[in-house]
Design a protein around this nucleic acid. Sequence first.
DNA 1: TTGAAAGCGCTAACAC
DNA 2: GTGTTAGCGCTTTCAA
Lengths: 350, 350
Amino acid sequence: MTEQSTEPRPTLEAVAARAGVSRATVSRVVNGGDGVREPLVERVRRAVEELGYVPNQAARSLVTRRHDAVAVVIAEPETRVFADPFFALQLRGISKELTAHDSQLVLLLTEGRDDHARVARYLAGGHVDGALVFSLHLDDPLPGLIRGVPTVYGGRPGWRDGSRGAVYVDSDNRGGAREAVRHLVGLGRRRVAHITGALDQTSAVDRLDGYRDVMVDADPGLTVESDFTLGGGERAMRELLDRCPDLDAVFAANDLTAAGALRVLRERGRRVPQDVAVVGFDDMLPFTEQADPPLTTVRQDIEEMGRLMARLLLRGLERTGAASARAGEDVAEAPSSVVLPTTLVRRASA
Amino acid sequence: MTEQSTEPRPTLEAVAARAGVSRATVSRVVNGGDGVREPLVERVRRAVEELGYVPNQAARSLVTRRHDAVAVVIAEPETRVFADPFFALQLRGISKELTAHDSQLVLLLTEGRDDHARVARYLAGGHVDGALVFSLHLDDPLPGLIRGVPTVYGGRPGWRDGSRGAVYVDSDNRGGAREAVRHLVGLGRRRVAHITGALDQTSAVDRLDGYRDVMVDADPGLTVESDFTLGGGERAMRELLDRCPDLDAVFAANDLTAAGALRVLRERGRRVPQDVAVVGFDDMLPFTEQADPPLTTVRQDIEEMGRLMARLLLRGLERTGAASARAGEDVAEAPSSVVLPTTLVRRASA
DNA sequence: TTGAAAGCGCTAACAC
DNA sequence: GTGTTAGCGCTTTCAA
């Protein structure tokens, strides 16, 4: 392993000694330097430089009770998480926003129920200022375990008792689905099928609702439940074709599912879009572009969702944080949930 | 935002008072309970339970100088990072291993040169016990900036002056490439082309070397430089076809590149594998399986690489950590680099 | 404006 | 075994 620094890192004390001032003064300079006269600031800065001083965050947190760190909890037992770049994009957005606010990203991946206690303990341990929680399934016990930690959810949580005032960022899944299905109908398709996502997630439920909004009294046989995966999409498509050979369009709950459907349609000799038009959801490049034919889909801005989540959380933290409370200054609104619009991206498949 | 616990969390002191013992005893119980008599352990446990006590990590780190946290640094300015599930899989492996050791994963994504200083500062700030660093390009300044923090690299670093005793985990890129090309040659192909990866990364260089090992005195025109992306693969394939229309096989530096190549081959009316056989690298499902035809490729176990990196780092930390040093017990070997084997996965494309 | 001093909550010697 | 005590490195009143 690369170099092990055995010699202790310099402390405030050391810097103070070197600069010939008190610890308090060094602390002030390090934290912005307000109320310290210029020549002293200069002296301290130089000492910091020379000694390569870096504040010890543990000591600082101990007194300030701030950590400048945010936990990102991805509660997704399935391998699916890593089959599409969804989370990577969210992380990217989050990371950008946090970085801009000098906050760190602590990633908590949970593989199953066992991990919930661990995550809860961690969050309760006061390691982080807040949490961003993803991919909740209905009745996920996690939210109940993390009370006391400011949290923003990715996607509307699916609690039966409403969302209990939880703050979340979501796409307009229902509206997007409506637009997709309307597009298919506008193309003259009458037998529009729907392959759902995992119905224990609100995104899947909302997309199904959107489909139903447009296809009122649709043949129930045209809807088949699936799970957001490629393999699931294949299975679902086979089932649909067996059940309703006359279908002329498919709205799939996401692009991965649509890719599976496309493959089966090709297998079965159905031409896309001539025989069957297909629309996906997510606009997950390069899946959609690489698909054959390139996939018409509903785009959501994943990275922006991540960024927004982080922003809401940080804003909330500032609002309740010591800084603003002390000054009693413009106490901003408590942040509230945001639903981002989607857009239909037309390609060759529909 | 969900609930803001305003009342202060209980401290060791509070637990001690409640259990009628000293802080030291509580501390002992909380940290394993060695050397505390059973009835007391019980009393303390109950008090902890009742008060919902959770240790304050900042206070603990301040004295132990351990953080039970490891930074994962992904230094990848390109969007590419998020186009394939490569990092997600590594993260998964790392996360599993860290979790098993009660360590946290702090993710540091760097978007460009500007971020290096930030990352260096963070690492120097003693927030973490060690670092796992990925995706280094040649002459990346980062390694120079993080001296003092135990580090394991993902992929062999490409420093001109050797790897300076750095510990890394890598795949046998060269051997895997050899196997891929030998396979093509074994199929009777004589004009085997190679689309390289980004040659500022050792993985790309090693794969090129492996290709050359087998194709000694190959037509230099059969090798074209690319960048591990789908678009890059398309461009490279076009160039190759223009330059060497008689080529009968392509070894692409990764699956994404291969996918690009496949697309262009189809465009140009070349049948795969009859006219041109194609082999990729990575075995990035579902890319390889979804490809048309399904892609023959060199598989590397990405998740295992991640897990191994974490294991090496943790082992090294234990070795030098207070615990083992104090006891003077079996001082294990300093961990050394590991190169994982690859395997050829045959599908339809070659 | 600057410094002195009191902790933040915890662990680890060292006594008892 | 258990308790007492001295810090870990920092911020933050409070005086000067």
